[in-house]
Amino acid sequence: MTTDGTSDNRPSKNQRRDAARKKAKQLRVEQQKKDRRNKIFLQGGIGVAALGIVVVVALVIMNSIRPAVPGPANMASDGLLLGEGLTAVTTSALQPDATPVASKPDATGTVANIRVYVDYLCPFCGEFETTNGDQIAQWVESGAATVEIHPIAILTGRSAGSQYSLRAANAAACVANYSPDDFYAFNSALFVDQPEENTVGRSDSDLQDVVKASGVSKSLSEINTCITDETYKSWVIAATDRATNGPIPNSAISAIASTPTVLVDGKQYQGSLKDPKEFAAFVLQSVGESYSTSTSTSTPTPAATTPAG
């Protein structure tokens, strides 16, 4: 007697379990290989990326750190001094790391020595210039005063990354170097439609336009190149550091804490920036005090004599 049926050829439970284990082991091995391969690729990619970052940083550093160059001519004191007729007092360029040579103030006590530290992004500097620029020019033109302007860049970080404060001061230095007698006009022009803080300010091309519009006609090509090359950038940074760290020669203050800082015969003006009469009165008072000091001399006492007998 035979039994009618088919034989069961399906894997047993143990066989299926063994097959699953082998498959799992195979998958683990393949995954480990894949992980090692990805790790190698990842490390290689990170290495390439890191190398790229190093190259970029190196290029930035190389482009930003330039060899120190001499400062602009006619600014050996870190400022440009204008005398009678608004004529610049010429000086040799200040060499890198050299100590500035302070301008000698008028010793007679009859000429007001006005010194102004300005940042071309500073709105208060704009107010002072708008209020007093014309009358200062008249005093200097006539010989009643001298004016020495020190461009500094303490607001470089407030121009949306464009470093306008620094670039404008560099442009002023370019004009001082190549066309010093036009410096006052350019300085005044920078405050017309002055850019506001936290804006990008003027581009280099805009600064070149201001140079031309202010009436500078001498060495325009050299000045334009000086602006785009930022020739005196390192000097502006150094001059700003010197001003903010002090000492400030021929003055009663130790360092420049803000702009504008206005000194008349060494005394700091702290009055209204919008009242030209108040500033004029301060100048008159300062000159009067300087004149009194310069003319006050001790009268010698005659020596006692013994009458002849």
Score class of each variant (00 low, 15 high):
Met1Arg: 09
Thr6Gln: 11
Ser7Lys: 14
Asp8Cys: 15
Arg10Cys: 12
Pro11Met: 15
Pro11Arg: 14
Gln15His: 11
Gln15Phe: 09
Gln15Ala: 13
Arg17Met: 11
Asp18Ser: 12
Ala20Lys: 15
Arg21Cys: 04
Arg21Phe: 08
Lys22Asp: 13
Lys22Glu: 13
Ala24Cys: 08
Val29Tyr: 11
Glu30Pro: 01
Gln31Asn: 10
Lys34His: 13
Asp35Ser: 07
Asp35Phe: 06
Arg37Glu: 11
Gly44Cys: 08
Ile53Arg: 07
Ile53Val: 14
Ile61Pro: 01
Asn63Cys: 10
Arg66Val: 10
Ala68Ile: 12
Val69Leu: 14
Val69Asn: 06
Gly71Cys: 10
Gly71Asp: 04
Ala73Glu: 09
Ala76Trp: 01
Gly79Ala: 11
Gly79Arg: 02
Leu81Pro: 03
Leu82Met: 11
Glu84Cys: 02
Leu86Ala: 04
Thr87Asn: 00
Ala88Ile: 02
Val89His: 01
Thr90Gly: 01
Thr91Pro: 01
Thr91Val: 09
Asp97Glu: 15
Ala98Ser: 14
Ser103Gly: 04
Lys104Tyr: 01
Pro105Ser: 06
Pro105Asn: 04
Pro105Val: 04
Asp106Lys: 05
Ala107Asn: 05
Thr108Arg: 11
Thr110Leu: 12
Ala112Ile: 02
Asp119Glu: 10
Cys122Ser: 14
Glu127Asp: 14
Glu129Gln: 15
Thr130Ile: 14
Thr131Pro: 03
Asp134Trp: 07
Gln135Trp: 02
Gln135Pro: 00
Ala137His: 04
Val140Cys: 01
Gly143Asn: 05
Thr146His: 00
Glu148Tyr: 07
Ile149Gln: 02
Ile152Lys: 05
Ala153Asp: 05
Ala153Ile: 04
Gly157Trp: 07
Gly157Ile: 09
Ser159Asp: 10
Gln163Phe: 13
Tyr164Arg: 04
Leu166Lys: 06
Leu166Ser: 10
Ala171Asn: 06
Ala173Trp: 01
Val175Ser: 00
Tyr178Asp: 03
Ser179Thr: 00
Asp182Phe: 00
Ala189Val: 02
Phe191Asp: 08
Val192Ser: 07
Asp193Asn: 15
Gln194Val: 06
Glu197Ser: 05
Asn198Arg: 11
Gly201His: 02
Arg202Ala: 06
Ser203Gln: 12
Asp204Gly: 08
Asp206Thr: 08
Asp206Cys: 04
Leu207Phe: 06
Gln208His: 08
Ala213Asn: 08
Ser214Cys: 07
Gly215Gln: 08
Leu220Cys: 01
Ser221Cys: 01
Thr225Pro: 00
Thr228Lys: 12
Asp229Lys: 15
Lys233Glu: 13
Ser234Arg: 14
Val236Asp: 04
Ala238Val: 08
Ala238Gly: 06
Ala243Gln: 04
Ala243Thr: 06
Gly246Thr: 03
Pro247His: 05
Pro247Glu: 06
Ala252His: 07
Ile253Ala: 03
Ser254Gln: 09
Ala255Arg: 14
Ile256Met: 02
Val262Phe: 08
Leu263Phe: 06
Leu263Lys: 04
Asp265Met: 03
Gln270Val: 15
Gly271Lys: 15
Gly271Ala: 13
Asp275His: 12
Pro276Asp: 11
Phe279Leu: 12
Ala281Phe: 08
Val283Phe: 02
Gln285Pro: 02
Gln285Lys: 14
Ser286Asp: 02
Val287Ile: 07
Val287His: 01
Val287Asn: 00
Ser290Gln: 08
Ser292Gly: 00
Thr301Val: 15
Thr301Ser: 07
Thr306Ala: 09
Thr306Asn: 09
Ala308Gln: 10
